[in-house]
Design a binder for these strands. Structure first.
Lengths: 168, 168
DNA sequence: TCCAAACCCTTGGATGTCCTAGTATATTGC
DNA sequence: GCAATATACTAGGACATCCAAGGGTTTGGA
């Protein structure tokens, strides 16, 4: 990982696609592969920033989501839907956050099937500190130009809507 | 996952960021979060297509990379660099591909430290079939417009170069 | 009223990714 | 020529993600 490659591997893959007669899908292949790689780079940066807090991105996302809920609590199925991850992933994250004393599980007042995740004061404080560093170290230095940020939001927003993420 | 959300959770997160006084980084936060989510959606589609072949995306990428090498063989460290993943991830993928009879390990002729990964004829055939389906089912139906594909390639290409992926 | 279907969460299993450490082989410098 | 350093791969561990299955709770139709 340390040393940059002499050539862009994704551009090379695109050339290979074209050479094999798949020119019609070479460009979207390159775009999709670039998204995969960009995600990998960004996730690496985020995890590096969160590590000193004892957080992973998955746990941070849950903590941040709870901190924006008015009551500081959410049902697990709601968290799963909003974070768009499998329910078992939420179970996993809550287990670890609970061990760390950042959230607690509490029964839903009216629905016996549902478990509420509730932020502790420690959890709320940690979410705040982690967000501040994430803002300054990652989001504030994304490396994307302002116009490109707008383009990404537009393009990926359309894609996500078409993929069935949301109906708005 | 099944039902679309009534609202875009990323747009909501952006509003939350702005409400908390982080307007200066709200847009890049939204763009980065959208990249993470888009990657998740695309990976899901790809894995669904590859599953009938007994392949995962990681294994497919390795297979495809080998199929483009003239000799059909590559040193593991080379594969790790080109795929931009950790060497242990390549070891893992090769283990499983080898069990499936799709690749074999062979010693490097001059460097005793190095192991070559070599495509078997089964591996080459499977890579070809999987690529065909991936092209028609995923890359050919990406949901991105032609202009958006070009924008993505440009924006993410710049990002990756600045991140140190390649020097070209 | 009551049982079947739907829903919620958890457990167990399979994969992939990374990190750290360890073993083996090459290369470099004295 | 030999020791020190660098490189290549593998083993073990921590996490996260998904799927399939299981047990408890609600809901809704007969």
């Amino acid at each position: 990982m340390g040393t940059p490659l002499p050539r862009d591997p994704i551009a090379d893959a695109r050339l290979n696609w074209e050479r094999h007669g798949w020119s019609d899908v070479a460009a979207p292949m390159a775009a999709i592969t670039a998204i995969m790689r960009t995600q990998q780079i960004l996730l690496g940066r985020i995890e590096a920033v969160l590590k000193p807090f004892g957080l992973t991105f998955a746990r941070y996302e849950l903590l941040a989501l709870l901190s924006f809920a008015r009551s500081g609590a959410l049902p697990m199925n709601k968290a799963s839907a909003l974070l768009q991850v499998h329910p078992t992933s939420v179970t996993n994250a809550v287990d670890r956050l609970q061990e760390a004393g950042l959230v607690i599980r509490s029964p839903h007042p009216t629905d016996g099937r549902t478990t509420l995740i509730e932020l502790t004061s420690d959890g709320r404080a940690l979410a705040k500190r982690a967000t501040a560093v994430l803002n300054s170290e990652v989001f504030g230095q994304s490396g994307f130009g302002d116009q490109d940020v707008d383009q990404l939001i537009r393009i990926l927003g359309t894609f996500r809507r078409n993929a069935g993420d949301f109906s708005g």
